[in-house]
Computed example of a mutant assay.
Amino acid sequence: MNARLPERQASRALLIGSSRFSHEGLHDLPATVNNVRALADALTDPALGGLDPSGCRVLTDPTTPQQVGDAIDGVVNEALDTLLVYYSGHGMLNQRGELFLAVETTDPDPRRVHYFGVPMGWLRSALADSPARNRILILDCCFSGHATQAMSGTAPAVSGNLDIHGTYTLASAPAHETAVAPVGAQFTAFTGELLRTLRQGVPDGGELLTLGDIYPALTRALLASGMPRPQRLGTGMADHIALARNRAYRPATPSTVKPRTVSEPRGTTITPGVRSTNEQDPKVAAEFHAAMLDGYRRAKKELNYNAGNFIQMVQQVGGLEAARRLLRASSVSSGFTTLWEKGRLDLAVEAVVLQDRFAGLFSDEELDIARDRLAEYGYSPAQTS
């Protein structure tokens, strides 16, 4: 699936910023208003690809949950291509551990918040019922990681599953951690980094800035600053949804391509840029296919990670073709990102590709892609046979 920008006229965004709160248990968050206004500017910037300004709606300082409900209702059915809903403010949990979003009159008492806060179920239902092909939910609030649980249908209070092709949830903090809004800062920590990524782009990324590009860049930058780790959940091929053009994109030219010295697999002669005869060796190809299946099984057993899309691709087209498709993709897969988060890039397809016994199955360019991706994420594979 190729990344593409949202269709301007058929896409909608609702950006909600709650900065003022009347209850003494909630402090004001002035940066949230800056968040939504700057994010609206970035999303509608024609130079970035942007949404049509008429389709990007900003709601600041709603006083009641009903105002938020009305605003959601005003965009969900209009979006036919891409729907983006963003909230920045206070997040709080009720006694059952369910997430609620604060408005000006919200009472944060866990016993009363469900009367005065915006329930996560409203946003879940809105995205589930929208006719939009792609749906994106971004939450910048405390405990926002609960949203990824709710959107996956695994939270105890949620009945049924949300299995919508092209739905992506991005949260600023884990389920049981608070988000960060530095005192006196123009933006909150999470949205400030999101804005920087949208405006400056991701070096070595593709021409379009996809959610699959944005999430790792956000995570690395925020962790380096001591901030909470963002959370994400994607269904279908949601990682390929693009929000903007990548300003840091530089197309490769002959003068910028660096020559690489290829280490030859044992007993094999490789002509640069040409596949070795190992590709024609059924035994080597079968061994690679088995290694791909073994990586899937190990991830499931050791990490409790079920890479459903990956194993389906391997079963449909074979391990070798599946690896080539993943290498040719403009950004890393959601599975690669998950393995990176868990510190197990040794199980990534790129690490298997670079094993000595399989290197002859791939072109120099494909080997370069695998090596560069792993290096970008701080992993140096050991040469194994």
Rank of each mutant, 00 (worst) to 15 (best):
D45G: 04
L194W: 04
G205K: 06
A244D: 05
S276W: 01
N94I: 03
G273F: 08
D45F: 01
A329H: 09
Y168F: 15
V202F: 07
N304S: 14
T188F: 06
L29E: 05
A175M: 11
D45Q: 09
D140N: 03
L327Q: 02
V274S: 11
T60S: 05
A299W: 00
G50I: 04
P119M: 03
A126G: 10
I270H: 08
V257Q: 10
R371I: 00
R344G: 08
R325S: 01
T253N: 08
Q355E: 14
H23W: 02
M292F: 04
S130F: 03
A217S: 10
M1S: 14
L139C: 09
P182G: 01
L127E: 03
E24H: 11
E264F: 11
R4P: 01
L170S: 00
A244H: 06
R12L: 04
V103M: 08
L303K: 00
L137P: 09
A370S: 02
L320A: 04
S159C: 01
F100A: 02
G206D: 11
P254Y: 01
G25P: 02
R96V: 11
G206M: 04
S172I: 02
L347M: 03
R4H: 10
Y377A: 05
T219G: 08
A248S: 04
L127D: 05
P203K: 07
S263K: 13
R266M: 12
P62C: 04
A3Y: 07
P216V: 05
A291D: 05
M292H: 07
A47L: 14
G97T: 05
A157D: 15
N2V: 13
G192Y: 07
A175V: 10
V68S: 00
L326K: 11
A155H: 14
V180P: 00
D204W: 09
S263Q: 14
I241W: 04
Y249L: 05
Q149P: 07
A47D: 14
Q315Y: 11
A128V: 02
I311R: 08
E279C: 12
R8Q: 12
G184P: 00
T271A: 14
P119Y: 04
L326Q: 13
S225I: 10
L5T: 09
F116D: 13
L320P: 06
L59E: 09
A322D: 03
I214E: 01
D129V: 13
T384P: 08
D52W: 06
V262N: 04
R232N: 14
V68Q: 00
I214R: 06
N2G: 12
M1P: 09
E78N: 10
S22Q: 12
L39H: 07
R250K: 14
V352T: 13
F336E: 05
Y86F: 15
N306H: 13
S385M: 12
A322C: 10
A382D: 12
K300D: 12
V257L: 15
T268F: 03
T337I: 14
G273W: 03
T337P: 06
